[in-house]
Design a protein around this nucleic acid. Structure first.
Lengths: 135, 135
DNA sequence: ACATGAGATGAGAAGCTTTTGCATGCAGTT
DNA sequence: AACTGCATGCAAAAGCTTCTCATCTCATGT
């Protein structure tokens, strides 16, 4: 698809595939790559992620934190619920909401193709309240 | 509530109250204030908005554009649907979704207090496709 | 009214995330 | 093996937001 198979791209895909945590910031990825002994620039991480996004391999989300997080597109649509305190993200999928939001969108003059729905709330469990490292 | 009644604060509230467009960026407000002949700094706009947010007078939203928009808190909860192309925002409120999202949140270990739910889609109407000025 | 002090302001610098410019380097092709 | 063009790293720049600090303003007590 016009993208060469280069070391940085392969490594980034590997991390996105293998990582426990589905939602990673560019900085997260950059740090992980360095720790893995890769010689890579932060700019490249951003560039690759942007290209992957354009190619549909990856989804970018701007949760209310001021930075973007990226997630491998595994083909199955899902929405997100995010803690406004600690940033914890959980994925979910609810047919009732899906139907309802399509209907609302149509009524208000929106078309819902590849869309995203995000709920912001707060974690109930204690690790959250402490600090952001709890993620 | 610990905030003095000063010219910038009053003016900003007036604009938020009077403006047709409910969702304004700090830059928007700043420009409007300058056009209204006010002598004000952008830093003050941000400061005041942040204070208003802390005081519950205003809500801040980080839609997927890279900057924040602010909206007067009129007391009635509502959610947003945003066009990812032109940025148009429409408010809506749906009891079915409200109930459903509370339930999902509880199941996943989240508490939903003052929350927000945002749907991202694309405008159907033509003015959108053109450019961002269509807002 | 007036002095006083805490808090607010404006201008610019700084901070953070993300993007861009440019010389170098590598992938894929001939 | 040579070649072309895209990809990379680094550093600089951009865009939004916050911070610093000297100055000014609001609100209070006299």
């Amino acid at each position: 698809m016009g993208l060469k198979v280069t070391a940085p791209r392969v490594k980034i895909l590997q991390i996105l595939e293998g990582c426990e945590q589905h939602h990673l910031s560019a900085e997260d990825l950059y740090r992980m790559l360095l720790e893995a002994g890769e010689e890579i620039g932060l700019a490249t991480v951003y560039r690759v992620l942007t290209q992957f996004e354009a190619a549909g391999l990856v989804e970018r989300h701007n949760f209310e934190d001021g930075y973007s997080v990226f997630e491998l597109n595994r083909g199955e649509h899902h929405d997100h619920i995010v803690c406004v305190l600690c940033g914890r993200v959980v994925e979910f999928m609810d047919e009732v909401i899906e139907r309802r939001q399509r209907r609302i969108a149509a009524e208000l003059g929106y078309e819902i193709g590849d869309h995203s729905l995000t709920i912001y709330g707060r974690c109930i469990d204690p690790p959250c309240r402490s600090d952001k490292t709890g993620l």
